[in-house]
């Protein structure tokens, strides 16, 4: 049974007790998923899993706020540079929420195109930030190897940086999108209805 209600606006957002507790939980999931990926030495970040789930449960605005707060808290506790990527997280939260409302997370076959769009959104927002802060690099060895190869062959910094970011985002967002889809499907319905009903 799908919990989607066609009558509500996806942009409707109130800071209710449910969303006030959902957002910190989503940020915590981002943190744990990222720590888990680092612990297993996976070639992906997984640090947007909570943002995906918050967008699916409580809409694009809640997802965007989760992503924003995630980067602000990270920036003020672990990695100050993460703060600027709050813009990327807002973009991811909004994109996931909109795609979810359009039905892209209803079937496994539809998740792939959704993940491609989200990866594109993430790369478009992150590229200028990478150029401003890191001269175009991402800090991930194999993405930066591609960046070095492209700049060595006189490709523009912007295109090389976009390619560096997009290849990383593509793999990461496809995996995160499928993880979010599978977790959402396995989640107890009372939880889904609770967070959706309290929007």
């Amino acid at each position: 049974m799908e919990a989607k209600n066609e009558n509500h606006s996806m942009w409707k957002f109130r800071l209710t007790a449910a969303t006030m507790t959902l957002i910190p939980a989503a940020v915590g999931i981002n943190y744990v998923a990222k720590a888990f990926a680092e612990g297993l030495k996976l070639p992906v970040w997984l640090g947007s899993l909570g943002t995906f789930l918050a967008s699916m449960l409580a809409g694009p605005v809640a997802g965007a706020i989760s992503g924003f707060i995630n980067n602000i808290i990270y920036g003020l506790t672990l990695s100050p540079i993460s703060t600027v990527y709050c813009l990327t997280s807002i973009g991811i939260g909004l994109a996931v929420g909109i795609l979810y409302e359009k039905g892209y997370f209803d079937k496994a076959s539809k998740v792939l195109p959704a993940a491609l769009v989200i990866a594109l959104v993430s790369a478009v927002i992150s590229t200028p930030l990478n150029v401003i802060f890191w001269g175009g690099q991402t800090g991930i060895a194999w993405g930066d190897a591609l960046f070095a190869y492209m700049t060595a062959h006189h490709v523009s910094i912007w295109i090389a940086s976009f390619a560096d970011e997009f290849v990383l985002d593509l793999l990461d967002k496809v995996i995160v999108a499928y993880l979010a889809y599978l977790i959402y499907k396995q989640m107890p319905k009372r939880l889904v209805f609770f967070f959706k009903g309290n929007r």
Partner: peptide, 19 residues
Amino acid sequence: LVPLIVKSFQEAMNRSISL
């Protein structure tokens, strides 16, 4: 991840009801 995430949302729901 599944039990960890479900547990986190469960705790969030409980906190929300308490609030």
